[in-house]
Design a binder for these strands. Structure first.
Lengths: 129, 129
DNA sequence: AAGTATATACGAAACCTTTCGTAAAGTCAA
DNA sequence: TTGACTTTACGAAAGGTTTCGTATATACTT
């Protein structure tokens, strides 16, 4: 998170970023097909969004071939961290604890995952002490 | 969370809800003053927002006296749960675990809180086993 | 070469959220 | 009762996001 002026992606932009993060550099056609797996969106709509994202720096595009190839312009973890901070303030008034408790309480988490979290906590307590 | 069609509050609406949750039934004047503690907003702007919230069911209002009194129309925990679900999907592709790890890693949490979380995890593991 | 298909560019409509000006009505004090 | 003040109501402007129609260019097929 070196970038000082972080841009907050809109909902649609985030949806597209998720695809770029998950699949790597992609064409508009591919992204649009993916989106249409679970909701209807016109091709030019997706195109426009991705062009806007390129303008904003949220995506990069390679225009060497006629069919442009887009890739994410911001890192997944930086973006998650940034959005998490905002969400935490807006929804939980900054209480990280409450958010974690809600999350653990409401979404099933596998025993392995729980163990992993416990390990992380223990590591933090050791480092901290 | 009995309500089946949950409304997603906008950012401004959530800001106002936080105040209603924290302080209980309040007048527009009070809410507006609170908002102005950390950013400038016109009185009629706040009034309009609260009227809209009443329309949507996000707030209730008592119009007995000339000065209307508004209270939250949705519960804090239901709303948090609902927003958390959406945020989790949109930002962490549904991985509760990743969200928790990010949160614990990035925001300082006191030793007491960490213990509390550990206790919760252990309780879950016992219940689950 | 002509016709079909697929790509980008552009602009504007549609929609939502936020902001505020103005009007109308109620309250209060001198 | 008049004037200053506060409140709600209303509507529309301003700003941002999403959607898509249309134009233009390029490639592919027969």
């Amino acid at each position: 998170m070196t970038d000082r002026k972080m841009i907050k992606p809109t909902e649609s932009e985030l949806e597209i970023l998720q695809l770029l993060w998950a699949h790597g550099p992609s064409t508009v056609r591919f992204v649009n097909d993916q989106l249409n797996e679970y909701r209807e969106v016109g091709y030019t709509t997706t195109l426009k969004l991705m062009q806007i994202m390129a303008d904003k720096g949220l995506a990069r595009r390679n225009t060497e071939s006629r069919t442009h190839v887009y890739s994410a312009g911001v890192s997944e973890s930086d973006t998650q961290e940034h959005l998490l901070k905002k969400f935490l303030d807006a929804t939980f008034r900054g209480s990280a604890m409450k958010l974690v408790m809600q999350t653990l309480g409401n979404h099933e988490t596998s025993p392995e995952e729980l163990d992993e979290i416990k390990a992380l906590i223990e590591k933090m307590e050791k480092d901290n002490h």
